[in-house]
């Protein structure tokens, strides 16, 4: 009885390992293909039957792709936008989270549910009039439309997430501070902010990803190439270089790499963030 059980267990584990190995291989292959294609010249890329490894490795593709467009500038632009948006979302949505969880004020419930109920609205409904409003205000072809919303609470989701997190922090802390005569601002900034670190990290990472990957907003607002972000520049790459797959793959790898680095540094918060999304929603 015990014997057969151990055998069954071993069979089960062997099957699982095999499946996991196959799946991991399949998930990894596209990464390999991106790098492999980035290091080949056109002749190697279009050889048939397919050539798997670059031979010789065309290292020049990387600097050539980088120099074919001002990528350093696009990187700097994206970086500035990321910093501005992360700071805005972290500060203003945690403030809103505080007001919607801790403070008692007229209109709180109504506004909170109004905010929540708009999460299902398709982006296109607000995108079109927002575009027209910004254009009328003369903000077309500037970064203003890409930054200002982050300083006004970020998204309904970010406000919701920080409110939910505030609800898990014991009230005794701010009650004690209130008795000691601390102001609301002091309670929020000095006492609660440090405790909020996990959710702030999650907000920061989501905003970072959102800004780094955003295509639609830069695409509709920016026309001057000097203001382009990496994603937009990459999307536009195919115009003049429609067939230059070596450059395109090199550029894709360059845009992907920082994201992967950030992931491995802050891995814990990525997973935490998604888990929070799934559970709190």
């Amino acid at each position: 009885m015990t014997m057969s059980r151990t055998t069954a267990r071993r069979v089960k584990l062997t099957i699982c390992y095999t499946l996991v190995a196959i799946l991991s291989f399949l998930f990894f292959v596209p990464f390999f293909w991106m790098v492999r294609s980035a290091l080949m010249d056109t002749a190697q890329l279009f050889r048939y039957p397919i050539q798997i490894f670059p031979n010789p490795i065309v290292w020049e593709n990387i600097p050539n792709a980088l120099q074919s467009q001002p990528f350093a500038l696009f990187f700097r632009n994206t970086f500035i936008l990321v910093i501005a948006n992360v700071a805005g979302v972290v500060i203003t949505s945690s403030m809103a989270g505080y007001a919607f969880s801790r403070l008692a004020w007229r209109g709180k419930k109504l506004l909170f549910y109004a905010l929540l109920s708009t999460m299902m609205i398709p982006g296109f409904i607000t995108l079109i009039p927002t575009f027209l409003i910004w254009t009328n205000l003369g903000a077309h072809n500037t970064w203003i439309p890409l930054i200002v919303p982050s300083w006004l609470g970020g998204t309904a989701f970010s406000v919701f997430l920080s409110r939910q997190f505030f609800l898990t922090i014991p009230r005794e802390l701010d009650e004690a501070a209130l008795i000691d005569g601390a102001s609301q601002w002091k309670i929020f900034w000095v006492i609660l902010m440090p405790l909020l670190r996990p959710v702030l990290a999650v907000l920061a990472i989501f905003t970072f990803m959102g800004t780094w990957n955003d295509l639609i907003n830069p695409l509709i607002y920016l026309t001057d190439q000097r203001l382009f972000t990496l994603s937009l520049a990459l999307a536009r790459f195919r115009g003049p270089f429609a067939t230059q797959w070596d450059f395109l793959m090199a550029a894709s790898a360059i845009v992907t790499l920082p994201m992967v680095v950030v992931f491995f540094v802050f891995q814990r918060y990525f997973i935490e963030g998604i888990t929070l999304t799934g559970i709190k929603a």
Binding site: A96, A99, G153, G154
Partner: peptide
């Protein structure tokens, strides 16, 4: 305080 803290988010909304 409520309106101040939620202010930016309300304006954004």
């Amino acid at each position: 305080w409520g309106w101040l803290f939620a202010g930016p988010a309300i304006i954004g909304f």
